[in-house]
Amino acid sequence: MGIEALLLIPFSIKLRFFNKEQKLIYIYLITSLVAGIAMYLAAKVYRNNMLVVSVSALLQFVILTFFYLEVIKSPRVRKLLQVMLAMACVVFVLDLSVWEGFLEFNSIFVSFRAFLLIVYGVIYFLQLMRDESLIEQSIFINSLPTFWFNAGIFVHSCCAFLFNLCYNFIQQGGPAEVLESMYKITASLAHFSAIIQAILFYIALLKIKGNRT
C-alpha cells in the first residue's frame, strides 16, 4: 500500500499531462491502493480476505488489458486481447464458484491472469522493436513512457506468476518445510518485484512531457 500511495503523489501532480493509456496506469495505481486497504480490513474483520484478493486481481487485470488495448496497434492482436479478457472472466467465475471457492486463494485464476500479462508484455516489446515509424523518427524505445510502464508490469507479472503457482502447491498440501521455503522465496520475489515496478513506473513518469508526448 505504501508504494502505491507514494507513487500517487507525483502521478497526481502530472495528471493533466496524461493521455489515455497513462490515465489507465493511474487508475491501476489507485485500484491497487484501495485493494490493499480492503484486503487489510477484510483480514482484520473477517479473518479471510481471499474474496477481496480475487476481485481486486480481476479489476486490475481489466484495467491493464485496456492499457494494452490502447498501446498495441495490431487489430488482430487487439481482438485476441478482448477474447482473453472474456476468457479470464470465465476462469474467475469458475475458480471462485467451482474449483477453489471464495474462501481460498484462487491460484488458478491469478496464475492465468499473470501468464496473460506476461504474454501481453512480450507482444508489446516485440511491437516496439519492429516499429519502423520509431526508427524513421530516430525515437529510442526507452524514451517512451509506455516502454517503462510495460517493463514494470512485465517484471511484476513474472514474479507474481511464480508466487501464484507456489501458492497452488501449498493449497494442495505437501511437506511443510518444502512448502514454507517455496512460499518465503516466491513471496519475497513478488514483494521485491512490486518495488521494481514502482521504480519503473516512476521512470515512465519522468518521460512524460508537458506536451503529452
Rank of each mutant, 00 (worst) to 15 (best):
residue 1 M to A: 12
residue 2 G to F: 07
residue 4 E to S: 14
residue 9 I to G: 02
residue 10 P to Y: 03
residue 10 P to H: 03
residue 10 P to T: 01
residue 11 F to M: 15
residue 13 I to G: 05
residue 20 K to N: 13
residue 22 Q to I: 03
residue 23 K to Y: 06
residue 30 I to G: 12
residue 34 V to G: 10
residue 36 G to C: 10
residue 42 A to N: 14
residue 44 K to R: 13
residue 44 K to C: 04
residue 49 N to L: 08
residue 51 L to H: 02
residue 53 V to C: 03
residue 56 S to W: 12
residue 59 L to K: 04
residue 60 Q to W: 00
residue 66 F to Q: 14
residue 67 F to Q: 10
residue 69 L to G: 13
residue 74 S to H: 04
residue 75 P to D: 11
residue 75 P to H: 07
residue 77 V to N: 05
residue 78 R to K: 15
residue 78 R to W: 05
residue 81 L to A: 02
residue 81 L to R: 03
residue 88 A to H: 11
residue 88 A to I: 00
residue 89 C to H: 05
residue 89 C to Q: 08
residue 93 V to M: 14
residue 95 D to I: 10
residue 96 L to I: 05
residue 101 G to K: 05
residue 102 F to R: 12
residue 103 L to K: 15
residue 106 N to Y: 00
residue 110 V to L: 12
residue 116 L to D: 09
residue 118 I to W: 12
residue 125 F to S: 08
residue 133 S to A: 07
residue 136 E to F: 12
residue 136 E to M: 13
residue 141 I to L: 13
residue 142 N to E: 15
residue 143 S to F: 04
residue 149 F to E: 02
residue 156 H to I: 00
residue 164 N to H: 14
residue 164 N to I: 01
residue 174 G to H: 06
residue 177 E to Y: 01
residue 177 E to R: 07
residue 177 E to C: 01
residue 178 V to N: 07
residue 180 E to T: 07
residue 183 Y to D: 10
residue 184 K to I: 03
residue 184 K to V: 03
residue 188 S to Y: 02
residue 196 I to M: 01
residue 203 I to P: 00
residue 203 I to R: 07
residue 205 L to D: 07
residue 208 I to Q: 09
residue 211 N to R: 10
